[in-house]
């Protein structure tokens, strides 16, 4: 492997598992967590697929020495990273499973390099979180809501910055996780999270949708605060050749709350795929 390949792998804490000769499934996490977000769905893919996941710059165990606020203040920096991971590992015919804001990156990456991707799996996606009354677009939020989110991030700043939060004394529900591991799970860097929150909630990729040629599966959750049903229908309308599947799972993170249902929906979609 070249130095570049190693550095990309290192920078983004890329992990590779599953069948080395299997088709590639690449997991891209969304705002608020890291690649651990996929922890519960990955086992459903490991027997047949080569499973690759990574942390976006600024999240998880990515190397913050490479974090440039300017580069990561728009989706483009993240999209370039995603494509760099594909290139470094020479990934072809990738099934890109992308959650939340990563679904926006997936769409931009598919427009930029359609030949890299076989399918896009968009988990709880949105085209824009901000309402646009002039286009009758319902994203779910206003600019003021996003300012409130930034304040919430600030009020959690010190707890996150120094991992000062105490560890709960008893946790019978998660016996497999203990101590430090539990504390670091989806722990967010408060400085980069602020930037990432802005990118997540203020990006608008509606204009890119018409240029997507890679077929996409849209997984729409029930009662998802971040992606109301209108958004799923909107994406389905705008993305040529897309499939919309509603999940029973509630909330915004079905891969954590309903891993099996989520994995089955993806596998079924891939199986029914004639190509």
């Amino acid at each position: 492997m070249s130095v570049d390949t190693l550095s990309v792998i290192d920078r983004h804490n890329v992990t590779v598992g599953g069948r080395p000769d299997g088709p590639v499934v690449l997991f891209a996490h969304g705002f608020g967590c890291d690649q651990n977000m996929w922890h519960r769905v990955v086992p459903f893919f490991e027997d047949r697929f080569r499973v690759v996941s990574f942390d976006h710059m600024g999240s998880g165990q990515s190397d913050l020495a490479f974090y440039e606020p300017g580069r990561y203040s728009t989706l483009d920096g993240y999209v370039a990273d995603l494509l760099a991971v594909c290139e470094a590992l020479e990934l072809r015919d990738v099934v890109l499973v992308a959650h939340s804001v990563a679904a926006m990156m997936a769409i931009k990456a598919a427009v930029a390099n359609p030949e890299t991707f076989r399918r896009l799996i968009l988990v709880a996606p949105s085209a824009s979180y901000i309402n646009d009354p002039s286009e009758s677009y319902v994203g779910g939020f206003t600019q003021e809501d996003i300012h409130e989110l930034l304040e919430s991030l600030d009020s959690n700043y010190f707890a996150w910055a120094a991992a000062l939060a105490p560890i709960v004394m008893g946790n019978p529900g998660a016996p497999e996780l203990t101590g430090e591991l539990e504390a670091s799970f989806c722990r967010t860097n408060p400085d980069t999270a602020r930037n990432f929150a802005r990118v997540t909630f203020l990006s608008d990729i509606r204009a890119d949708l018409k240029d997507v040629s890679v077929p996409a599966l849209i997984l729409q959750c029930s009662e998802d605060l971040l992606a109301p049903p209108e958004v799923g229908r909107y994406l389905h309308d705008q993305l040529a050749g897309s499939t919309l599947v509603g999940l029973k799972a509630t909330g915004h993170v079905p891969q954590a709350s309903a891993p099996e249902e989520t994995a089955r929906a993806i596998l079924q979609y891939l199986q029914s795929d004639p190509s």
Binding site: F31, G32, G173, A174, E182, C186, L225, V253
Partner: peptide, 16 residues
Amino acid sequence: LLHATNSVPRMQLAGS
């Protein structure tokens, strides 16, 4: 928003 994007997955994955 922060609850949905951070606390919920952490609860589900780490249990606390």
